[in-house]
Design a protein around this nucleic acid. Structure first.
Lengths: 408, 408
DNA sequence: ATACTTTGTACGAAGTGTGGACAATATGCT
DNA sequence: AGCATATTGTCCACACTTCGTACAAAGTAT
């Protein structure tokens, strides 16, 4: 039951119904492809006549194509329809502290080209380099189809609406208008998003469903930091200033260890990779100098190594992992109590130890969840598909094609 | 950018456009009444012809009426349109530990009759009594207009969809299907909601705007417990099991005082009225026996008295209030970081001391908010209008008339 | 061959918003 | 008083929807 915003609404025109139904048709085809016109009509509960017209329009717009003739036990054989994603391309960029990844992929996330290079921290240089790099990729990979935009995933706070990077401590970027600069340099539309939320968008838009895709879920990525994305009614929660979803800095204990954000006791300061390592090595995060912190990030010993030791029988390593697991579960209880999602997707290095920590996480979640059902909220490990961040960045450009038209 | 749910969507029919626009018209009239057809057309950005037809339909449906002829400097004078809310009535019920309130009011929340009585804890008796009470109220107040439903606000967890009370500790009710029983006894539609969320609905649906009504806000009511309602895009966040929004039991400190919910360190256990009183009297909440807790609730010394002492110069009382204020602000920071609302509405006894605590609350909020803008999220004291819970209960029945039609 | 089934298209009917014309109503100016 | 001007509210042809039905196309079963 949504209230109509009387200051900002859209009245229905005579083409609104068609717009809505065309978009629904596109999504149903996307979900069930390959699919015939008749089957589409049944799925949509409209007559074959209407479905035929909608399909014709989608064909004219080059959004779908007619494939092979299908099989049928009786009667005329159907012509099957497919989404045309192969010749709609995106440049996806994932900027991280150490490396920057650039991928050219199609609208379904299929990779055409990929390269990684040392991150360039100077903004003008970064922009110039990226523009050149994109041109080169197109040339060397003989890419003929049109590139429709550039999507960037950035580790930090981003105002997606304005394309401004508010604060990306890992990169040392603050109040940077990266979008417009990059758009000017490349002549392409650019969208920027926080990397955690980008991953969430990948799950929402690019995960084609063996199982039913949930419309209400939360993504939690545990890495150097903790990235969270909240999806409510099939829409990413962005908030009034487009900075919503920061569960990472919800306190577990106001007097807890100091966090990179300046506050103390944040969830992130209990479960980030650095926190887990600190627990093992006996570092005091609060007193960790920026230099040492830097070294730890660069260091060769990662959480993956820690997990390997835990598996090998190192009791101290196992204890560190289990403690992180417990705090992970306790924090998830907060997510469940506040958002009450259908399920939660977990991601990050720590999830490679899921067989070791599942019980601990689930128990901790049940401990603080307010209802039994909440405590049983399914926890899924985000698909092991490669480069979730890059896929998320691609979704930034691909999603608008499929999104529901705004109405009322 | 919303994803279309391919398992559950609504295709547009040839009447969908009209449905959308009629509903928009109703809302614009509601917001700007009294308003002429021509002005409505301008506000909606449609031709006067369409506006005329929409108005005629709303007149036929008895949702609006033509009032007096308005004034205009030039030309033909407009006939002004008004929302017809006076003869559409609701029974609103607010069940609390000590008293139950029953109000008959119209769709705009205007009170026609009100009575309070000792809460009946036996469900069958409660139902029988309430049915009889409603009949009596109608008779004694000579109410002729139709009553369109009963809305209940209950202190506890409610699944609004099924109308089941999951757990209302204050009343000792657990897993009760109150809605169907009450509907059977009265023959009226019944809607039940948690009292905090009911207040939120009142703010969303019944607050007619001097200022622009926000579409994204959070309501926080501090009383015996803490009730929170989250509004995202003009829609109350209900979650997958309809139990979302429980910020009350987000921990400020995992090792904090024991909370009524069983966990420890919940926000509620730091800022509820009982917590504030305990701070003053030096009670240890963790060790407080249920009996004593009961007495404290019944006790004659309330938070209002405490605030009075603080104003009178009692340093200990002031300290207790200020400590609560600080924890209130710290918890609000979590709300801001996660939801990032346009504003937050505060309610409850403690807000009568707003002049004393505003600085403390704002400082604490700024301390843990991740962005400067977040720390400056406007905090409003929920309108002092009487009986917010009852108005919220009424909104449960009145809102569907104005809600946006579901599409796509 | 004939009956039957399914797919895909065509067409009139009914329901929309769009844009312009027009009557009704009131004010200001000559 | 008469006319120009301005605003409200209605009406109608038109373009664009979906809806229901009819029908051709294309195949299987007997």
């Amino acid at each position: 039951m949504r209230k109509i915003n009387t200051r900002d609404f859209r009245v229905a025109t005579r083409s609104t119904s068609r717009d809505i139904n065309r978009r629904i048709a596109l999504n149903v085809i996307h979900e069930h492809q390959p699919i015939s016109r008749a089957e589409l009509a049944r799925q949509m509960n409209v007559t074959r006549g209407v479905a035929g017209v909608l399909v014709q329009e989608l064909l004219d717009q080059d959004l779908i194509y007619e494939g092979a003739t299908g099989e049928a036990a009786f009667g005329r054989k159907p012509t099957l329809l497919h989404i045309k994603s192969h010749d709609r391309l995106v440049v996806a960029v994932d900027i991280r502290f150490s490396k920057t990844f650039v991928m050219v992929c199609d609208f379904s996330g299929r990779q055409l080209a990929l390269e990684a290079y040392d991150t360039i921290f100077s903004i003008p240089e970064f922009v110039r380099d990226l523009a050149a790099r994109v041109r080169r990729l197109i040339k060397t990979h003989a890419i003929t189809a049109g590139i429709e935009g550039i999507g960037l995933a950035v580790p930090g706070m981003v105002d997606q609406r304005t394309g401004r990077i508010l604060n990306a401590p890992a990169l040392g970027w603050r109040a940077v208008d990266l979008r417009n600069q990059l758009a000017a340099a490349t002549g392409l539309p650019v969208e920027i998003e926080n990397s955690g939320r980008a991953c969430t968008l990948a799950l929402l838009w690019l995960e084609r469903g063996e199982t039913t895709q949930p419309q209400n879920f939360v993504y939690v990525g545990v890495s150097d930091g903790v990235g969270v994305g909240i999806v409510v009614n099939g829409e990413l929660l962005r908030g009034s200033d487009h900075i919503a979803g920061e569960f990472a800095h919800v306190p577990l204990n106001l007097d807890g260890p100091r966090c990179m954000c300046g506050a103390s006791g944040c969830w992130e300061s209990y479960i980030s990779n650095l926190a887990t390592l600190s627990r093992y090595f006996g570092w005091d995060l609060s007193k960790l100098s920026p230099n040492k912190l830097h070294d730890a990030k660069q260091g060769s010993f990662t959480v993956l190594d820690l997990i390997a030791r835990a598996r090998a029988g190192d009791a101290k390593a196992m204890a560190a992992v289990q403690t992180t697991a417990r705090f992970l579960g306790l924090g998830l209880a907060t997510v469940v109590n506040v958002i009450n999602p259908e399920c939660i997707y977990l991601d990050g290095e720590i999830t490679t130890a899921w067989d070791l920590i599942e019980t601990t996480v689930t128990l901790a979640l049940g401990e603080r969840a307010l209802t039994e059902r909440g405590g049983q909220t399914p926890l899924h490990i985000a698909s092991t598909q490669e480069y979730p961040r890059l896929r998320g960045a691609a979704a930034l450009i691909a999603a608008p094609t499929f999104a529901a038209p705004r109405v009322a």
